[in-house]
Structure formats: structure tokens, C-alpha cells
Simulated scan of single mutants.
Amino acid sequence: MRSGRAFTGAAFAAVCAVVAAPTWAATPPAGYSGNPVFPGWYADPEAAIFDHQYWIYPTTSLKYSAQVGFDAFSSPDLVHWTKHADVLDIKDIPWAKKALWAPAMVEKGGKYYFFFGANDIQSDKEIGGIGVAVSDKPEGPFKDLLGKPLIGAFHNGAQPIDQFVFKDDDGTYYMIYGGWKHANIVRLKSDFTGVEPMADGTVFREITPGPEYVEGPMMFKRSGKYYLMWSEGGWTGPDYSVAYAIADKVTGPFKRIGKILQQDPKIATGAGHNSLFHVARDDSWYIVYHRHPLGDTIGNDRVTSIDRMYFDKDGYILPVKITNEGVKANPLQ
């Protein structure tokens, strides 16, 4: 472990009060995580379970000039969180110059792969896009794998950002990504050094679910169906939100069903860019997302929160109730 500090309960609230009083959440009930789940400005959280620990890898939500590294957070139970500082630093990515954000994580063969966006490129004339780093441990340190972007150009109008890596039941890894109102899916090579054609020869397949799509796609599979989630609205504003679609194939077609996560004027605004924890033991689902504290109008002032997510009897996702108390402890072992 590189750098660790645990937070919970009243101590958690005290730290938060120093950072952002009085807009931060109050002390949570005993046995609950509270929201935000850890102090500091963090966004775009990636949720993963490694070695009986919950992990969150968020964007460090600062101005682009200062957004040059990543921290990670681990927990045995969703309530007690330990910070692991500087798990990936821009100095270890030779082609990255600014604006690191939106991690995606995969463990394979005892290695941990950290996918990220860098440089916020606006055209194919710039160097940047989606990169990948690797480590022997989930807390890093991570080092750039390729010496160049994994995807460094626009395809189907999609800015190469906001990637999510999905492993299908047959062991195939796909990456879903895209900003600027376009989403693509690609098939990753088995060593994550590039992309390869799908069965029909397509390399970059567009799966944009509708005109409301903006960015932040993620995918999961449940009861044989593929669920695509994404963010809508403006990331700096109160209308940022999450919607979803369901399809029979990993490549869609995906047609928007509706929103399931959005602001509550009594709790927080701009709830979006999500990931998920699924605990197979009790089939519990948790949505991990960022939001703006009430009364705060600074776009980068985003905090990471967790709430429960439920399905109805037909497999549709029920609207998520965002809370200040967060979720109950759920130890993994």
C-alpha cells in the first residue's frame, strides 16, 4: 500500500466540514457510508471489486492544469474507506500533457489495467485520447503500457474519452467509449495493446442510443440482457443525469428507456457519470456516481457518492433515490 488513510463516521464528517462546510452532508447514521463516501473533489468514479475489497478510482476533479494524477480508494464494507494517493501520475505517461480523467479498471492474469482519458483532444491533429497503464497491484503504482494512446483519433464523431471495459461471458473484452454525443464499441486485443475487428469486420461500431446521449457510457449484463448506461446534460450543471437502454446483443441496437439517476433539489444536483458494484452473494447492486453539493455552482466541485439500485420484476431499473446517508455496510468477507 502506497499511502493510506481511513475515514468513517464522525471523523469523516469533520474532515468534510473543513473541506466544504456548510454544503457537505451531515454525519451519517451508524453503519452507513454517508454521501459523499470520502472527502475531496472527485468525479467520474470507476467501481471495481478486487481481492474481497471494494475499489473506487475517480477523476481528481480540478482545473485541467491541475488534473494530472489519480488517487484510489478501497473499502472492505462500503463504509470504511482508505485513500491510496497517486496511483497513476502524468509523469509516468510520456504522451500525456494535461487533463487526465475517467478511469476504467480490469484485472487479468494477475495484472491490473488502468484505462484513462488524457489531453482532451479536439481533433485528429492533436496527440491524446484513451490510454492504458498497468500494475501488479490494484493500488499501483501504474505505468503507461504503450507509450502512445490506445485510441487516439475520432471515429463516428466520438471524442475518444470516457471509456468503460466490459468482459462478456465468452471472455471477450470490449471497450465502450465516446463523448460529443457519440458512443462506440470496440473489441480489445487480449493483451489490451490495441483493438481488433469484430466478426463482421467492423472495428469501430457506433452504438449511440439516441440524441440525448452525451458521454460516460458503461455496460453490464443481467439475466442474459446487455444494459447500457450513459450520462446526459451538461457535466457542470444541475441537469447532469444517467439514462439507460437494454439490448439482446453486446453491440445493440440500444434504444433509450429513460432516466434512472438525477438531481434531487433537497439533496444534491448534477448526479451523473456512474459505475456499479454488484455483490453476487446477495445480488445487491450499488450505483456509484458524482454530484454537486447543494448551493455550489463551481463546475469542478464534484463529490463521489453511492446509493442502492434496484430492478423491477421485468428487469427494468427503478429510479434511484439519492441520499445523504448513503448505503449500509456490506462486508465482502
Rank of each mutant, 00 (worst) to 15 (best):
P45Y: 06
S75T: 04
A26S: 10
K249Y: 05
H84R: 10
L145T: 03
S190Q: 15
G34F: 01
L88M: 09
D191C: 13
I267T: 14
M218R: 09
W180N: 09
K143I: 13
R256C: 06
L78F: 03
G129P: 05
I93S: 00
Q263R: 11
V214G: 04
Y316A: 08
G117Y: 04
D314C: 02
P209T: 08
V87L: 08
A66Y: 14
Y173K: 12
G315R: 03
A245N: 08
T323H: 02
K266Y: 04
A17S: 15
D239S: 04
I176R: 05
S74R: 15
Y226T: 07
Y54D: 11
N156E: 08
V303K: 06
W24N: 07
G157V: 03
D191Q: 15
I56K: 01
G237F: 09
Y112F: 14
F154Q: 10
F166G: 05
P253N: 04
K91H: 09
N35C: 03
P45C: 03
G233T: 04
R256F: 06
G234A: 15
G224P: 07
W55T: 11
V19F: 11
T172I: 13
S123V: 03
T202M: 06
P138L: 01
G295P: 00
S231F: 10
K83V: 15
A30D: 11
A153C: 05
D312I: 12
F115D: 04
F204R: 12
M1E: 12
S231E: 10
T59E: 14
V15L: 13
A66T: 10
E212G: 13
I260T: 11
N119H: 05
V106H: 03
F277G: 09
K91I: 00
T60A: 10
T60M: 11
D200I: 10
I260S: 01
H290M: 04
V327I: 03
A21C: 03
G252A: 09
I161C: 05
Y310C: 03
P76V: 09
D296N: 12
M229Q: 15
I176N: 09
I151V: 11
D51F: 07
R2I: 14
M309A: 07
T269R: 01
D307W: 02
P211H: 12
F164T: 08
I317K: 01
A153T: 14
A99N: 14
S33I: 13
F115Q: 04
A47M: 02
A118S: 08
M175N: 08
V165R: 01
A271T: 13
S231A: 14
D283K: 03
E126K: 10
Y64A: 13
E126Q: 15
R256N: 15
G128R: 13
G31I: 02
I90R: 04
K91N: 10
N330R: 14
D296M: 02
H290N: 06
N119V: 00
Q333T: 14
H290T: 05
G31Y: 11
P209W: 01
M219S: 11
W101T: 01
P58K: 04
D312W: 09
T251E: 15
K83S: 14
T60G: 11
D239G: 06
R256I: 14
I161V: 15
I121L: 08
W101E: 07
A14M: 12
D200H: 05
L318G: 02
Q333V: 15
G9T: 09
D71S: 06
G110M: 03
L88S: 01
V214P: 00
D282P: 02
G178S: 03
G216Q: 08
G147D: 11
